[in-house]
Simulated scan of single mutants.
Amino acid sequence: MARQGNSALIEVYLERRQDLVRFFTVRLRSAAAAEDLVQEIYLRLSSREGPDAEIQSPTAYLYRLGSNLMLDRMRGERRAAARDRAWRETHRTDVGSDEVDETPNALAALEARQRLERIVQAVTELGPQTQRVFRLHKLEGLSHTETAAQLGISRSAVEKHMIAVLKHLARRLP
């Protein structure tokens, strides 16, 4: 078993980067999506903390990490599409065979935009990790488990950060 440090793993990443891009371009059917994914692999490697882990095959580890990130991203996209579809189905009104536009009026849209600005401003008063948890979970739609994996923290920690955000928002916003 070869002991691979973080820098050794990054070195293997740099050597195999183009292969990783080609591999994920085929699977994602998009060079841009593959570049994003391979960059995310690098970010994960560079943010690893703690003692060096024993990795028998660094190349296989990189491909597995990329595949896991790709699957997480695809699951998130499917969840978002299902959520959007469900919302459209429940927020649609038909009169006869015609669909009625339920777009909020300008005043309602302005009030919603202002409320969102107040929420975002209130969240900036919290710690950086709590802000990251909020952004990933509420704005990007990741589950607690996915948010925990993305940030390298426990699911319980994500829940605690979200409780802190909700309590803070309840105090700050009318």
Rank of each mutant, 00 (worst) to 15 (best):
Q114P: 12
H144A: 06
L116M: 09
V38I: 06
L62A: 07
A157K: 08
R155T: 07
S67C: 11
A82V: 15
G76A: 00
T25R: 07
T124R: 06
N105T: 10
G141K: 01
I119Y: 04
S154A: 05
Y63Q: 06
A157H: 07
T130C: 01
G127R: 13
G141D: 03
A109T: 07
A53Y: 07
A109E: 09
L14P: 00
V26G: 09
A32F: 11
P104S: 02
R3W: 11
L139T: 01
E146S: 04
I153P: 09
A86M: 01
R118C: 05
E15M: 14
A60M: 07
I10N: 01
R92K: 10
G141L: 01
L142D: 07
A112W: 09
L37R: 08
S57T: 13
E11F: 09
G152P: 05
I153R: 06
L139S: 02
A31I: 08
D72G: 14
I153D: 02
E15G: 15
V123N: 12
F23E: 12
T130V: 11
S46T: 12
R29C: 12
R115K: 04
M162K: 00
R171K: 14
A108V: 09
M74N: 11
I163Q: 03
H161Y: 02
Q129K: 06
R79N: 04
L110E: 13
L166A: 14
L110A: 06
M1R: 13
V21P: 01
E111L: 13
L110S: 10
H137F: 08
Q150P: 00
V133Y: 04
R17A: 05
G66P: 00
Q56D: 15
D19I: 04
M74H: 13
L107V: 14
R155P: 01
S57Y: 07
D36A: 02
D101H: 03
F134Q: 06
V133D: 00
S143M: 01
L110P: 03
R115Y: 07
A148K: 02
F24L: 12
D36L: 02
G96D: 08
Q4S: 05
I163L: 05
L126F: 06
L126Y: 09
L173F: 04
R29T: 12
Y63N: 08
R48C: 03
V26T: 15
A164F: 02
R64S: 13
Q56V: 15
A86F: 04
L43T: 04
L169K: 05
S30A: 00
E99V: 11
R88K: 12
R29E: 14
E49L: 09
R78M: 15
G76I: 00
Q150M: 03
V26L: 06
T124N: 11
R75K: 11
T25K: 03
P58H: 02
I10A: 02
L173Y: 03
L107T: 11
I10D: 01
M1Q: 08
R75F: 09
F24W: 08
L14G: 01
R3G: 03
R113Q: 11
R171C: 06
D72S: 12
L62M: 04
N6G: 08
H161K: 00
A157M: 06
E49T: 13
Q131C: 09
D19P: 00
R113I: 13
G152M: 06
A164Y: 01
L71K: 14
R73E: 15
L166T: 12
A108H: 04
I10C: 07
L65W: 05
L69I: 11
L28H: 09
S156T: 15
